[in-house]
Design a protein around this nucleic acid. Sequence first.
DNA 1: GTCTATAAACGGATAGAC
DNA 2: GTCTATCCGTTTATAGAC
Lengths: 233, 233
Amino acid sequence: MTRTDTADAKTRLLDAAEHLFTEHGFAATSVRRIATAAGVPLAMVSYHFGSKKGLMEAVYARALGQRATSRVGYLDRLEKQAGGAPISVDILVEAFISSALRLTHKGTISGAVFKQMIGRAFYEPEAGVEDFFPTEYAEAVERYKCAFMRALPALPVLSEADVVWRMYFFVGMVAYAMAGKDVMRMTEIYALEVAGRPEAMLRRLMPFIVAGFNAPSADLAPTAGVLAAALSA
Amino acid sequence: MTRTDTADAKTRLLDAAEHLFTEHGFAATSVRRIATAAGVPLAMVSYHFGSKKGLMEAVYARALGQRATSRVGYLDRLEKQAGGAPISVDILVEAFISSALRLTHKGTISGAVFKQMIGRAFYEPEAGVEDFFPTEYAEAVERYKCAFMRALPALPVLSEADVVWRMYFFVGMVAYAMAGKDVMRMTEIYALEVAGRPEAMLRRLMPFIVAGFNAPSADLAPTAGVLAAALSA
DNA sequence: GTCTATAAACGGATAGAC
DNA sequence: GTCTATCCGTTTATAGAC
């Protein structure tokens, strides 16, 4: 007996939609199916949310809204505590990931579902959240960018392009992991311990990312080209 | 006047489907739209491919089939040339990415479209290629895994779990970039030079990944926990 | 082999009873 | 406020003419 069974129609629709959109995607999920899963008449979707799209926006709004505080919360506390001194890269990386994962442990939504939902939002073509995310997270990205630039070794200094690219890669990787995707079935084939344990992944991910951020600037030491050199040797 | 205009119905359907599935996703693309775009009667879809799903499988089969040789081609040549000696990490990383990007420059399909299509295949829920990819690429993953383990510093040696995790992160990042996704709109906001130029991204990505692979083992130096320590200080 | 016409089911949305 | 019944466009797939 889950909470959904006793909640009101609106909440049950949101719960069902969240789950089904996450699992099958927006276009592939019909409102009929959502209403059936929620045990609610079809018309309640139009009544409460106006349209299918309205329902999806409500799903994201609920999920993100109630967690809005955690985007730069860690960073605020860290900067306050540091009192002007740079924050080290490893702490920034863990703060960034933790802000993402922490969404998993708060609020009414199942952590696993929410995590996948956000991961999916990154790839769903018609998701519509592509208009939502950037405005909501632009500040967080900018704040972390500045923090990373201050944290990284002064000489040879990384260009802003270097830092932003590395954050781009970082975000992409976290999205892939959060979406629970594993196209190569690597977690199966190599029995990676990941099921339901984001901490295990975090432990593996952190050194990888931290080292990446600390790599020499691509402006100064263009690494690409070694393949061609090796093959023509 | 593109090639599509003169090709036969089957080919034109594949071309149109490839393009539309890539742009809008499987569920959101109707066969009518595909047939219209291809300038071909609707019934030709059933005739040639049996069903919508059959069409999609044909799209992937054509795209991947004709490029099957390039998955471990670089690695074969590198290992032959090295004659038993380990291949350095930077060369392996570039070979792996190049094998992915090289798909872009071969065959009949537009590079940009194919690239996005593969990227999409990683996230499309109903794509069905999740049964296809692992079997096709398991050998390549295993080969690269062995090569990376031989290339990485002997002491402290990375565990197989370390190496596989790092390949997992690597794959995820490449998938995100290949799908052309950018949820945070970072390429816009920070004017990253990426449009149509995978080489620019490669130059930025390589040092990041290489450094990540060379990071100390997560088994020996668990980095996670610095955030909690910093906040409780 | 190719295509037109249509079937059969499903999609989102709503009118109007209660 | 809540729900049943239905509208009507669109979907996939096919039957059958050419």
